[in-house]
Amino acid sequence: MKNRSLVSISDYSKQEILRILELAEEFEKQPHIDLLKGKVIASLFFEPSTRTRLSFESAVQKLGGGIVGFSDSSSSSTTKGESLNDTIKTVSNYADLIVMRHPIEGSARFASEISGVPVVNAGDGANQHPTQTLLDLYSIKKTQGKLEDLNIFLVGDLKYGRTVHSLLEAMSMFNPTFNFISHEKLQMPKEYKLFLDKKGIKYYEHEQFTDIISRADIMYMTRVQRERFSDPIEYEKTKNTYVLRNEMLKNTKENLKILHPLPRVNEIHQSVDNNPKAYYFEQALNGVYTRQAIISAILGLK
């Protein structure tokens, strides 16, 4: 992992993923306040994403590193028409590692090829967001004590949701069973189902929440976005069909945890928040440990 960019979750082998999770656990136990002392991390957010940015910046500062950068492109030279190529080449002179988020797909891969320092992709349009996937894996491992043989439910927008696609790919290394719950227009794309068929991994598709959720170890909820529907009435109906409410969790497994990449709209009712099975806020905190692990591993400090 040392000196290598992290652009897509498939850049890491199973061993490397497990190594990151181990390190994240270590960071959770021990703060390591000076590990990044003297290092500068560039945080380049060409589009705003407050949560992801704060999580990265918190990870860096907790390790004693410095941060330079910008939080949206209106405060960067890209508004003056500078190309990504020039921005990356310039910034890589000032930093030991670049964290970047950019609305254009493939921008992080391109940046990693022209940058003199490693690049961590913090989201490139609808394409990849590997640090989210790693923190999801960390949350699953931490709450279930293992990654193998779990029954994973993916709920909501399974068609466009990049987080569920990357999670599906990564979890496929650990012999899972998948259950997909979504509106017929937002079903898991064929290419991912083919991928699972090839690996011999079982999956089941549902259009409604039913008693089937009593089998879940993990329920991964995603938001359904208005833009996905041409008919606003259909959006309103769909939005309200896939809402998880506290009473629905009555017969679910003891070890069940509910995850969500946040921010949520209404897909998890607030009544769930106090249920011990709700895990989405802790999941966000796990993001800090995971990002500490990723940055330290790439800089060769761990």
């Binding site: 897509s8 190309s83 990504l84 797909e105 493939g106 391109f110 349009g125 394409n127």
Partner: peptide, 24 residues
């Protein structure tokens, strides 16, 4: 958007399906 040489992996040689190295 930028001056980038395109790169593709041919994932199906019969139907000639190309997977973009950048946006995937």
């Amino acid at each position: 958007f930028e001056e980038v040489t395109t790169k593709f992996t041919v994932i199906n040689k019969e139907t000639v399906d190309l997977k973009c190295h950048y946006c995937e």
